[in-house]
Simulated assay, not measured.
Amino acid sequence: MMAILDSAMIMPRTCVAADQVLLLDTVGSTNTYAADLVREGVLFGANGADGVSGADGVSGADGVNAGKSAWSGHEIVVIAANEQTAGRGRLDHTWTSVPGESFIVSLVVSMPVSIMRDSSVSGWLQMIASCEMREAIVGAVCDFGGTLDEDVLLKWPNDIFAGGKKLGGVLAEMVPIPDCGDRVAIVIGVGLNLAVAQERLPIDKSTSLQLVARNLPDAMVLRDAIAVRWVQGLRSRLADFEEDPHREAVRAREAMTPICWTLGKQCEAHFVDGTTLQGRAVALNDDASLTIEDQEGVLHRVSTADVGVLSK
Rank of each mutant, 00 (worst) to 15 (best):
E150W: 03
D118A: 05
V121N: 04
L171R: 02
I128R: 10
A172C: 14
V152Q: 03
H93W: 09
V141A: 01
R88V: 08
T94A: 12
S130Y: 01
Q126E: 13
D151N: 13
D92S: 14
C131T: 10
I160A: 02
D149I: 06
R90F: 04
I104M: 11
G139E: 05
V105I: 14
F161G: 02
G145D: 14
M133W: 00
M133E: 07
P157W: 01
S114I: 06
I128N: 04
L107E: 10
R90S: 11
V98Y: 05
L91G: 02
S110H: 09
P99A: 13
T94W: 04
L167N: 03
G139Q: 04
L167S: 07
R88N: 07
D143A: 12
I177P: 00
D143R: 10
S97P: 05
T94M: 14
M116Q: 12
C142V: 15
V175Y: 03
D92N: 13
R90K: 10
C180K: 11
W95N: 04
N158S: 09
P112K: 11
G87M: 08
P99E: 10
G139S: 10
I128D: 00
S114R: 13
D182W: 00
V152Y: 01
R134V: 10
A185R: 02
P176G: 04
P178D: 08
G181K: 13
G164C: 03
R88L: 09
C131P: 03
L91W: 13
V170T: 13
L153N: 00
D118P: 02
I160R: 00
S114N: 10
S114V: 15
G168D: 00
W156E: 05
T96L: 14
E132S: 08
G87K: 02
R183Y: 10
M174R: 13
P112Q: 08
M127K: 06
P112V: 11
G146L: 08
V184N: 08
D182A: 15
C180Q: 15
E135S: 15
S122T: 09
D179V: 11
D182M: 12
Q126A: 10
